[in-house]
Amino acid sequence: MSASSIEFEMEELLLRIAPELAKQWQGANPELIAQVERIAGRPLPPFYHWFLRRMGKDMGALAYPTLDFSAERILACYAEKLVAPDSRFLLIGYESNEQMPLHVFYDFDVPAREDALVTERDAMGGDLYDRFETLREMLAWGALLRFRVNKMPQKCEGILSSEEPDLLSSLDPLMSSLGFNKPIPTGPRCGIYERHDAVMICKRTPREELLGYQSFRIGGRDAGLVRKILGRIATESALEVEVDEWNPALR
């Protein structure tokens, strides 16, 4: 699948679950994008090009409370020498919360699916805290959490586990048999599943050594439906389901 068709699917997903974005998001102008690319010292991942063109000035309802992903902010951080240019890492999200000053970076040493690994670290270096294999997955996962899962009457979260490292190879066909669609393609460490009355998202840290585990969140129209879906996963696949929390709590 080409990068352009994937981004078409991504845009379709975002505008479907948050239609207000059509009037809110604003792209960065081409010169600012070119300046970011010069700082990177290499061609930007195709998805990041799309992201900057579509919402590199304003993310609208997708904006994170304390993270600024705008091209203007990124360029300002480099101009003010808050972060040094690096051939491996590119700052893409500035964290304004001084209590947790971990900024979002691309790690170009780990490209994936016309995109690259998203990690967090201090502005000047230090330990890495990897988040998603791609920015595409980070945005899609977060958007579905905010605009679908969290708006469902019943929510649940927990852990899926399997003896097989590629857990999603078992989960994907089962979710399809239950009528769920995958709105965009993902890698083996992030699963997103939708149908009209329920949504399930799962992920694990990209470089985590514990293969065969995924945290999950699911939302549905009522507790009975969510319990039925989780029960089908537990009984019709080799996956184990461990529930940590129901919201609201079950009586």
Rank of each mutant, 00 (worst) to 15 (best):
K182P: 04
R227Y: 04
L160Q: 07
A61F: 07
G27T: 07
R38S: 14
G231D: 09
Y213N: 07
P185T: 01
L239A: 01
P173I: 03
S96C: 09
M138T: 02
T66E: 11
E31N: 14
R73Q: 14
L52Q: 12
I218H: 06
G27N: 12
E20P: 03
E9G: 03
L44H: 09
I92R: 07
I17Y: 08
E163I: 02
D115R: 11
A234D: 03
C156L: 11
M124E: 15
I229L: 14
E98Q: 09
K23N: 10
L75G: 00
L15C: 13
L13T: 01
I184R: 03
S2Y: 00
A234N: 03
S161C: 02
A3Y: 08
E72F: 06
E163C: 02
Y193N: 00
F147C: 01
M55C: 09
Q154W: 08
L144C: 11
R204P: 04
R195Y: 04
V226E: 12
A61Y: 10
M124G: 11
L160W: 14
R207T: 15
K151Q: 15
Q99P: 02
L250T: 01
C77A: 11
D130M: 09
D122K: 15
I201P: 09
R113I: 10
S70P: 00
K155A: 09
E137S: 09
I192N: 07
C202G: 05
D127S: 15
A123I: 11
Y193I: 01
I6K: 12
Q35P: 00
R54S: 13
Q24Y: 08
W25A: 11
I92Y: 08
R131S: 14
L160G: 10
F8V: 07
S161Y: 04
